[in-house]
Design a protein around this nucleic acid. Structure first.
Lengths: 337, 337
DNA sequence: AGGAGTAATTAGAGCGCTCTAATTACTCTA
DNA sequence: TAGAGTAATTAGAGCGCTCTAATTACTCCT
């Protein structure tokens, strides 16, 4: 499996090694005649640049690593789209690593990317400690997406989860609901802020007595379990705000299992507005996170550091919006106690 | 962002460069005393091996690239789990590339991995031409998953889609259905085999006159559209077999939109048995592809080529099974014409 | 104490490329 | 047609590591 090298291309084309290098890097000041010769020789040999060698010498890889907290969560898969599109334009390639929903899995992927000397890393939904991420930032440019941060060292792009959660609560209150419970995201990225937004909004509406939170973990089964807990309480909620779409789907099923109708008996609101929520069979009312924009912003920030040599950190907040679908509706007087 | 090098570690530890290299590669025949010295110096300096340099010299990367046809399709995300688990055990790290559902996107990712000189590539659900994949196999070990192949050059791991499709049809016939339509997967991996299995089974059951196929593309919206087409026909099907879970979900919605009840009026069967199908709110009857096993087998095959130097190609077929959930039921006499 | 045999360490070439500095080839002007 | 100026090409060092071969340090016998 020996690959042809530049040396061989040079010999075949009858030029120097250095000239081949110039051609491969599309440098200016190469005559068309020689460029042609080199290109032909390369094609005949099936030459393919060796990124390892190239980057050992040039000290850059033109490659960005993206660490996803969980490849199974559609939210992260959708952020990738914006990231990939933006980096394609900028001439970088992107490699993806799966964090397997654990801080150590994320840390391993970051370590791998660092060993590969990628030019930058975007970490989506990181659950690992901020200090470990900051440590990695000594070796490359790192941007965190979907997780709030005030780090002096690394940039972050994030939805304003506090106000997103408030929107969900406001929406439900507007529909007449009072007994609004929250299924949270445990230690997941953004869970804390959504929890806080929920409490604050409830309090603002004079419903602090109605605050009820059940523990979830951003998965469907977590949502199912949490909903069980909520339904078994004496004072069943008439609405549930789940910390993400996955757990909202789980809650939805649990509620229907209990013989209740969504949204007539219980309204449900999710978070993220993933393709899952948009699936017409679910049609989940949810809080939209502009995934594409989040991805593109993250890219912009790493490019700013890479190209413009920016060194001070930037923290960008994106505004969420409410997407009204079929799992939420006005509280019927019958259901109200 | 200059990183410490082995040279610096060697100086600090007061040993030779070569010794540091031995320690980093966990080679035997290094005294505990010196090993300790080196490890400490490395830790103090925050030394991290440079994979690029290491592999330039050793001509291997201990890294495998996995190209997913579409990172949004849960089927592929689930194959990753098995792949990752198996490679973790074997001491390889895995990098993921997104093919963006297009042959050219896949080809680009393969090219990137080849330039990085990965030790092997697993391509999941490849839609690019077999000959391009074979061309790449001159440079590294490649295994194709979820797509049938008879290539002499590269290995494949695949579910027996023909018999999987037959199972779906058999199941529906057993439930009394005759008018069973198929929503296919277009040019997607496995689509052709599933189409064939469908036709063959229908014919075997003496239902060749009932064969109806609508064009899908393995997406939810494709399934929705295809179902529209089927419902608008004079002779509406009483059952639909969709080529994957995503399009089954789309079809499901379209059928319900038409005011029909699933499964009472129309039964629906999907394919893949992804987490989506298992979602309790959907509860889709589907054909199971053992994703974890597919992933692990693919890993085994690349390891066999890597470690045991196998050179002849292997094509492995895995048996599918039917998973009976809530979207299929016995044809009611009322619905039968 | 002198060797033989083995264990531990190191020197140094080389992996495939980039990049600076030097060289050579042109073009234009006077 | 010589000289200046620019464009095109090349030599050669070096990126950070591995790996073979050579060297040095130990052990254990006799």
């Amino acid at each position: 499996m020996a690959q042809p090298t530049m040396q061989q291309v040079a010999e075949r084309a009858g030029v120097s090694l250095a000239l081949v290098s110039l051609v491969m890097r599309q440098a200016p000041n190469v005559s068309d005649y020689r460029r042609q010769l080199v290109l032909e020789a390369a094609a005949e040999l099936g030459y393919r640049p060796n990124v390892l060698a190239r980057n050992l010498a040039s000290r850059q890889t033109s490659t960005i690593g993206v660490v996803l907290n969980d490849i199974h969560n559609p939210f992260f898969a959708e952020i990738i789209d914006g990231i990939q599109a933006a980096f394609d334009e900028a001439g970088y390639r992107v490699l993806i690593g799966n964090g397997k929903r654990s801080p150590s899995g994320e840390a391993e992927m970051i370590e791998t990317f660092l060993q590969f000397r990628v030019d930058g890393i975007i970490s989506a939904g990181a659950t690992m400690s901020m200090s470990s991420i900051e440590a990695a930032s000594e070796s490359t440019k790192i941007v965190v997406v979907g997780r709030s941060s005030r780090s002096q060292l690394i940039d972050s792009v994030n939805t304003d989860d506090v106000s997103g959660a408030r929107m969900a609560v406001d929406h439900l209150v507007e529909l007449g609901h009072h007994r609004i419970a929250h299924i949270d995201g445990g230690t997941g990225a953004g869970a804390e802020a959504r929890r806080r937004g929920y409490s604050e909004a409830m309090t603002d509406h004079g419903l602090s007595a109605e605050i009820v939170t059940a523990g979830g973990d951003f998965t469907e089964s977590g949502g199912y379990l949490a909903a069980s807990e909520l339904l078994s309480q004496s004072n069943q909620p008439t609405a549930i705000f789940a910390a993400n779409d996955l757990s909202a789907a789980g809650a939805l099923h649990r509620v229907e299992d209990a013989g209740l109708i969504v949204p007539d008996d219980v309204s449900i609101v999710g978070y993220d507005n993933t393709a899952l929520a948009a699936m017409q069979h679910l049609s989940l009312t949810t809080v939209n996170q502009p995934r594409d924009e989040l991805g593109r912003l993250a890219v912009r920030f790493v490019l700013e550091r890479l190209r413009d040599k920016r060194t001070d950190s930037v923290h960008h907040m994106v505004a969420p919006t409410l997407v009204n679908r079929k799992t939420s509706s006005r509280l019927t007087t019958g259901a109200a106690t």
